Simulated scan of single mutants.
Amino acid sequence: MTEKLLNHRTEGPTTAPPLLLGPSLGTSYALWDQVAPELSIGHRVVRWDLPGHGGSAPDLIGPGATVGDLAGLVLALADSLGIERFAYAGVSLGGAVGLYLAVHHPERVSSLAVICSSAHFNGSKMWEERAALVRREGLASLAEGADARWFTPGFTVPGLVQDHRDADPGAYAACCDALAAFDLRERLPEISAPTLLIAGRDDPATPPAHLREIADAVPGAALVEIPGASHLAPAQCPEAVLTAMRAHFDKAAGGAKRGMEVRREVLGDAHVDRAQARQTAFTARFQDFISRYAWGEIWTDLTLSRRERSMITLTALVAHGHYDELAMHVRAARRNGLTPEEIGAVLLQAAVYCGVPAANSAFAAAQRVLAEEEG
Rank of each mutant, 00 (worst) to 15 (best):
L326K: 06
A319Q: 06
F289T: 07
A333N: 04
I312K: 04
R258D: 02
T283W: 12
G268E: 03
I298A: 07
T313W: 10
D288H: 15
H320P: 00
V266P: 02
W295P: 00
L302R: 09
I298D: 05
L302H: 12
D288L: 13
V330Y: 08
Q279W: 01
I290C: 09
G268S: 06
L304D: 11
G321L: 04
R292I: 04
R278P: 01
R331W: 03
E308P: 01
A319E: 03
R331C: 03
R258F: 06
R263P: 04
S291D: 13
I312G: 09
A275R: 15
R292T: 04
L267D: 00
T283A: 07
L302W: 10
V330C: 02
S305H: 06
R335D: 06
E297I: 11
D273P: 13
R285D: 12
H320I: 05
M311H: 11
D269P: 04
R285W: 08
L317S: 05
D324P: 13
A316D: 00
S310E: 10
T303K: 14
R331Y: 04
L302M: 10
G268D: 15
S291N: 14
Q279M: 10
D301R: 09
R274H: 15
I312E: 05
L317P: 00
M328R: 09
D269V: 12
G259Y: 03
R264N: 09
D301V: 00
Q276V: 11
V330T: 06
R307S: 14
Y323E: 03
L302G: 08
L267I: 01
D301Y: 05
E265S: 09
L314T: 01
E325C: 09
L317G: 07
R292L: 06
M328H: 08
R331E: 06
Q287E: 00
A333D: 05
R306W: 13
V266Y: 02
Q276C: 03
E265R: 14
H322W: 05
R263T: 00
F282H: 09
A294Q: 05
W295S: 07
